[in-house]
């Protein structure tokens, strides 16, 4: 097993938004598991940190929540992306791509000397 990483500061919100975009409506536990899966189990989500992040996103109006019933007939709170959340996801994705592109340029071997 390779070393597992913590979720980098500031990226959890983006992962949550992206997960909800992909999955539609999902409960907190599902979001956490999905993030771990998507990362190929390379990321550890301390589940406790997820809920404050969900609350913050909801306060900001990017996601909305509703109580419902889970696949195993359990009552659970489901989160879904709002219209503002979709826009925010686009924005954050752009920012993130830009940031990684810049970093990649730093890390790649110099082409023009």
């Amino acid at each position: 097993m390779g070393t597992k990483g913590e979720v980098w500061q500031g990226t959890l919100a983006l992962m949550v938004l992206k997960t909800l975009e992909a999955m539609g409506s999902l409960h907190g536990y599902g979001v956490a598991r999905r993030i771990e899966q998507t990362s190929g189990n390379k990321l550890i989500v301390q589940y406790g940190t997820l809920y404050p992040a969900l609350l913050k996103l909801e306060q900001e109006g990017y996601i909305a929540s509703e109580w419902g019933v889970s696949e195993n007939n359990r009552r659970a709170k489901f989160y879904k992306l709002t219209r503002a959340g979709r826009r925010q996801l686009e924005r954050e994705t752009r920012d993130w791509e830009q940031a990684t592109a810049i970093l990649a340029r730093f890390l790649s071997p110099a082409e023009e000397a």
Partner: peptide, 27 residues
């Protein structure tokens, strides 16, 4: 009013955590 509308009581959050734990335990 925004705070009120959000209606996040701690009871509700305990319920959410409890359901999270149950799902995890079942898994």
């Amino acid at each position: 009013r925004g705070v009120v509308a959000l209606g996040k009581t701690e009871d509700e959050f305990s319920a959410e955590l409890e359901s999270h734990l149950q799902m995890h335990i079942e898994d």
